Simulated scan of single mutants.
Amino acid sequence: MTNDEIRSLLLQLICDIAPEADPTSIAEDEDIREAFDLDSMDFANLVVAIHKRTGVSIPELDYRKLFTLGGAITYVGEALAQSGSGG
């Protein structure tokens, strides 16, 4: 997956969890929890959704790496590349 594909997927997953979210309104370095008003359960659901769609396992210690859109894109991209699924 390219970074653009990962970005698109993440924004789609966020909109599935928070339908009122405006995916065009977020900067790469902005905290997605604040930008989309995600509570801890919403964020946990996002992590589960990322895993289901990409196969990337995200340990709780790494959650902070997903707090920004840019961080999440990088994290998922690197995990996919390491697993050989990065195509």
Results as ranks from 00 to 15, higher is better:
residue 1 M to W: 10
residue 26 I to V: 02
residue 53 R to V: 01
residue 4 D to K: 00
residue 73 I to Q: 01
residue 48 V to A: 03
residue 45 N to F: 10
residue 56 V to C: 13
residue 5 E to M: 12
residue 26 I to R: 01
residue 6 I to M: 10
residue 58 I to L: 07
residue 67 F to C: 03
residue 87 G to C: 05
residue 62 D to H: 15
residue 27 A to N: 15
residue 18 A to P: 13
residue 3 N to M: 10
residue 1 M to G: 05
residue 3 N to A: 11
residue 64 R to M: 11
residue 86 G to N: 07
residue 33 R to D: 07
residue 46 L to I: 03
residue 49 A to H: 00
residue 71 G to N: 01
residue 58 I to N: 02
residue 20 E to I: 11
residue 67 F to M: 08
residue 78 E to T: 04
residue 50 I to D: 01
residue 64 R to A: 14
residue 34 E to N: 11
residue 86 G to K: 06
residue 22 D to A: 00
residue 57 S to P: 04
residue 34 E to F: 15
residue 62 D to T: 12
residue 68 T to Q: 08
residue 7 R to T: 06
residue 3 N to E: 15
residue 71 G to L: 02
residue 52 K to L: 09
residue 84 G to Y: 02
residue 48 V to F: 02
residue 86 G to A: 10
residue 76 V to S: 05
residue 38 L to C: 06
residue 26 I to P: 04
residue 10 L to A: 06
residue 23 P to S: 04
residue 87 G to E: 08
residue 15 C to A: 08
residue 13 L to D: 05
residue 86 G to M: 03
residue 62 D to P: 13
residue 59 P to T: 09
residue 22 D to R: 00
residue 65 K to I: 14
residue 69 L to G: 05
residue 36 F to Q: 00
residue 73 I to H: 00
residue 3 N to C: 08
residue 74 T to K: 13
residue 54 T to S: 14
residue 54 T to E: 14
residue 4 D to Y: 00
residue 27 A to C: 13
residue 84 G to Q: 02
residue 17 I to S: 05
residue 52 K to E: 12
residue 86 G to H: 06
residue 56 V to E: 11
residue 72 A to R: 03
residue 47 V to M: 10
residue 4 D to C: 00
residue 61 L to C: 11
residue 20 E to Q: 15
residue 62 D to V: 08
residue 17 I to M: 06
residue 27 A to Q: 15
residue 47 V to Y: 14
residue 14 I to S: 09
residue 34 E to I: 10
residue 33 R to I: 03
residue 36 F to N: 00
residue 85 S to E: 08
residue 75 Y to T: 02
residue 25 S to R: 10
residue 71 G to W: 05
residue 41 M to L: 09
residue 3 N to D: 15
residue 1 M to P: 08
residue 26 I to T: 01
residue 40 S to D: 10
residue 43 F to P: 01
residue 38 L to Q: 05
residue 81 A to P: 07
residue 30 E to I: 04
residue 59 P to Y: 07
residue 28 E to Q: 12
residue 51 H to Q: 15
residue 13 L to Q: 05
residue 51 H to M: 15
residue 78 E to L: 03
residue 46 L to R: 06
residue 61 L to G: 11
residue 1 M to R: 07
residue 72 A to P: 03
residue 13 L to N: 04
residue 58 I to W: 08
residue 45 N to L: 13
residue 21 A to T: 05
residue 83 S to P: 12
residue 44 A to R: 11
residue 9 L to R: 03
residue 82 Q to K: 12
residue 20 E to F: 14
residue 57 S to C: 06
residue 71 G to K: 02
